[in-house]
Design a protein around this nucleic acid. Structure first.
Length: 271
DNA sequence: CTTTTGACCTGACAGC
DNA sequence: TGCTGTCAGGTCAAAA
């Protein structure tokens, strides 16, 4: 489900409500996520204060007094802040109760998400160590994109989705960025010219920033910390729009399959 | 090394 | 109504 804009929207929603508060109790209703929720986490966290919530790629990093809790939302995860004694939904797996009577709940029907703990520097954690730069950070330049694409035979869309090269871009925004740059998702990455990379970086930034302003994309079940959907789906140029008219030129948007995932493009605007 | 494929898991939806 | 097949925003591990 959530790509960078949805994860960042979640972070911005929950952080002001929870930071500087102390954890009363962690309740794990179902520890079977992508990896088991660590058995000792409840005992470890009890009494610690939440210092900050940061984001790296699609990971949320909860900074506690004595370590970092790594949370990933997988395909179907969402975090919400609620008043505590509210009834549980079937897929509310983990619940953090804080000293001001509010609680954070992780809901994740497909259980591809994760809740992990480390007391080491978090960027050395195996899941984070190999990640590429943030697409909205200063390292993501046309030169960088040009450099990492040399000699690669993968499709452009898959280059953008490769977390070791660029962190946080998923299928929606990779497709949207390709449209913004006027490049077909299947274009071989190694054949990009410098001018393509200039347009691509600009398109990627514009797409992600615009999605952030809209509070993310809600296709079926994304909701922010208050349970509200995002609105960027109304602005999507190609993703999920197969058979509809291109907003720029009116040509019918094509939907196909690239690898195991669907891809969308305008046959006229994208070359 | 790069690239592709399978696996994990549940729910929604289309079609019969 | 109920069955079957397909698809979904991620990403790791293994195979090619």
């Amino acid at each position: 489900m959530p790509e960078l804009p949805e994860v960042e929207t979640t972070r911005r929603g929950i952080a002001p409500q929870l930071v500087q508060h102390r954890l009363i109790e962690l309740i794990v209703h179902d520890s079977r996520l992508r990896w088991p929720v660590p058995a000792g986490l409840a005992a470890e966290l009890r009494g610690q204060s939440l210092q900050a919530i940061e984001r790296r790629a699609k990971y949320l990093l909860f900074r506690w007094d004595r370590g970092t809790m790594i949370v990933h939302l997988g395909m179907s995860g969402s975090l919400r802040v609620l008043d505590c004694p509210l009834p549980l939904s079937p897929h509310d797996h983990v619940e953090w109760r804080f000293d001001h009577g509010r609680c954070l709940r992780l809901r994740d029907p497909r259980r591809f998400g994760a809740v992990l703990w480390t007391s080491d520097p978090v960027d050395r954690h195996p899941l984070l160590r190999g990640l590429g730069p943030e697409p909205l950070g200063v390292e993501c330049t046309p030169e960088y994109l040009y450099a990492i694409s040399r000699g690669r035979k993968v499709a452009l869309r898959d280059l953008l989705m490769n977390a070791r090269l660029l962190a946080g871009v998923g299928n929606i925004y990779a497709n949207e960025a390709c449209f913004g740059a006027g490049l077909r998702p299947r274009r071989m990455a190694g054949r990009l010219r410098r001018a393509d990379c200039v347009r691509l970086v600009a398109a990627l930034r514009a797409t992600l920033e615009s999605a952030l302003r809209a509070g993310g994309t809600t296709l079926r079940d994304f909701q922010n910390a208050d349970g509200q959907p995002g609105y960027f789906q109304q602005t999507l140029s190609v993703y999920g729009r197969a058979g509809q008219a291109c907003r720029r030129c009116g040509t019918t948007i094509k939907g196909t399959r690239l690898g195991q995932r669907s891809t969308f493009y305008c046959p006229h605007c994208q070359v």
